[in-house]
Each structure stands twice: as structure tokens, then as C-alpha cells.
């Protein structure tokens, strides 16, 4: 009897529990869904924005649909100015800088967390201080520096600057992960007589693929949207990027907001695709790593 009662109450409790958890999940999903709407809304807003003219942009409520969609904003963006070229420049400059940053940062993080040397702490400190300088303080010194190297108006100046300025951040993010990563796998590999380069490229890098993808995403977004450096160092049209292309629609007294919206919309597409691709790697990488481990 008592056991039955017990079982009953247990059952009851379970049912209650599941009812409660159903409600809980409902609330949870409602909240999550609300956040999702808030987060995806900007993209929709931007799309509407890109189909409006100045009059609508500043008059109608931002919620509103464009009354008479101005698709010509897109054709204008494609025909006025060199957006195709800017597009190409944006892609190769971003990719080069991302690859360099992530690789160099992985090297450094590996050396700092896995290898034994006296100066590792001070060197890490050096990298961290690199986070702290405000960008606008560096413009005049960097311009002068690249001028002396004859690299002004040369894309290398931008690629190198992006790499250098993203290294500290990238190293710090990598560092947090490297510390939590179990060292056993690597130790075993060394015992097996694995060379250090093989260890880095065949064991450590694949194991850290999730965080490498994470930093790649972050770097990619920063480089893609950067405009202060490129504005300052580059003057010929042939090396300018999409962010500079936006300026094509900012006039002395008049700004064409619809066209800017269209430029922003066009420029977000490749990065959105790259993001979705890399973002899957965050999960897949873990699976691959754990199989190896």
C-alpha cells in the first residue's frame, strides 16, 4: 500500500514536474523567440531602408514598408562608382588579414600555453597592451611609418594593420580556450615522438578548430566593416573597399540614405554567408576533435 502510494506520489510529482517544465519551456521559448525577433529585425529593417528614398527614410515610422519600393537604389549602387571592384578588394583584404591573424595568433598562443620559456609571461603582457591603444591615436604615427616604407596607398599597409590590431584580441580569446583544453592528448603525441610542428598542425589546430572558427568570424567582421585605416592609408580607387564605397553617397550637403542602405545590404550578404558557414564549424570542429581525442 505504502509502496503504491509512494509510487503514485512519485508519478504525480513527475507529472506535475513535466507540466511545470512544459510551462517553463513555453515561457523560455517565448523569451527566446522574442529575442530572436529583436535580433533579426535589423536585417529586415535594413532591407526596407534600402528601398526607400530620403523623404521616406526620415518621415515614415521605421517599421513601415516602403510605399513604392525603390529598387533603383540597387541599380544605382551597382552603376555609380566601382562597387564591383570594392567588393573584390573587401574580400581579398579581409581573407588575407583573417588568415594571417588567426595563424599567427595560434602560433603565439601555442608557444605561450604549451611551451616552456622564461619570457612567456612578459611577451603575453606585450600582446595584451596592444588592446589598449585608441585607434585614432595611432593614425598619424602609422601614416608616417607607412610613408617611410613607401606603403601608403598600398593594400599591404591595410592588411598588416588589420593583422596587428586584431592579434591581441585573437590571442586573448584563444588563450582562454587553450587553458581549458586537456593537455593529455598533446603529451601523448610528444611521447610518441611527434615533432613539434606536426603536433601543432595535426593535433592542436584541429582540436582548437571551434575557437579558431570563432576568432575567424570575429576577425572577419572587424576587417569587413573597418573604414578608418583604409580611408587614411589608401587614396586610389583601385584599392578601396566597400566601407569606403558608402561614402560615395555622402555628399557635401546631401546624403542619399536609400543608396547607403542598398550598399550596406549588398555588403552584408557575403559576410552573412561566410558567417553561417564558419558558424557550423564551431560545432563540427568539436565533434572532429573529440573523435581524435
Amino acid at each position: 500500500m505504502s509502496t503504491i502510494a509512494q509510487a503514485n506520489t512519485k508519478h504525480e510529482a513527475k507529472r506535475k514536474n513535466s507540466a511545470f517544465s512544459k510551462l517553463g519551456y513555453g515561457v523560455l521559448y517565448a523569451i527566446l523567440g522574442l529575442i530572436a525577433v529583436l535580433q533579426i529585425y535589423p536585417l529586415i529593417w535594413l532591407f526596407f531602408f534600402s528601398l526607400k528614398d530620403n523623404q521616406e527614410v526620415f518621415n515614415e515610422s521605421p517599421f513601415s514598408l516602403p510605399t513604392d519600393p525603390k529598387w533603383e537604389n540597387y541599380t544605382r549602387v551597382w552603376t555609380d562608382g566601382n562597387i564591383g571592384l570594392y567588393f573584390f578588394n573587401s574580400i581579398w583584404i579581409t581573407v588575407t588579414a583573417v588568415v594571417m591573424t588567426v595563424l599567427l595568433a595560434s602560433f603565439v598562443t601555442f608557444a605561450i600555453t604549451r611551451m616552456k620559456w622564461k619570457l612567456s609571461k612578459p611577451v603575453l603582457g606585450l600582446f595584451m597592451v596592444g588592446l589598449m591603444i585608441p585607434v585614432h591615436s595611432t593614425l598619424i604615427p602609422l601614416f608616417d611609418f607607412f610613408l617611410k616604407l613607401n606603403l601608403i596607398d598600398h593594400p599591404l599597409s591595410v592588411v598588416l594593420t588589420y593583422t596587428a590590431f586584431n592579434l591581441p584580441l585573437t590571442i586573448m580569446i584563444l588563450l582562454g580556450f587553450y587553458y581549458t583544453l586537456p593537455k593529455e592528448v598533446e603529451e601523448a603525441a610528444i611521447m610518441d615522438g611527434c615533432s613539434i610542428h606536426r603536433l601543432f598542425f595535426q593535433v592542436t589546430l584541429p582540436m582548437t578548430l571551434p575557437v579558431v572558427s570563432t576568432t575567424a568570424i570575429i576577425n572577419m567582421i572587424y576587417n569587413w566593416n573597418e573604414f578608418v585605416f583604409i580611408n587614411t592609408f589608401i587614396s586610389s580607387d583601385q584599392y578601396k573597399t566597400l566601407t569606403v564605397g558608402i561614402q560615395n553617397f555622402i555628399g557635401q550637403y546631401m546624403t542619399e540614405w536609400g543608396a547607403i542602405g542598398a550598399t550596406l545590404m549588398i555588403s552584408i550578404i557575403p559576410i552573412l554567408i561566410a558567417f553561417l558557414f564558419l558558424s557550423n564549424r564551431i560545432v563540427e570542429g568539436i565533434a572532429a576533435g573529440s573523435v581524435k581525442g
Binding site: 549602387v77 555609380d80 562608382g81 560615395n248 553617397f249 555628399g251 557635401q252 546624403t255 542619399e256
Partner: peptide
């Protein structure tokens, strides 16, 4: 100068 094709076509 300050007059890009996009926003200041005639200039």
C-alpha cells in the same frame, strides 16, 4: 574633393 558621383552627380 568632396563631390562623389553617388550623392553629387552633377558636381
Amino acid at each position: 574633393h568632396l563631390w562623389p558621383e553617388g550623392s553629387s552627380k552633377q558636381h
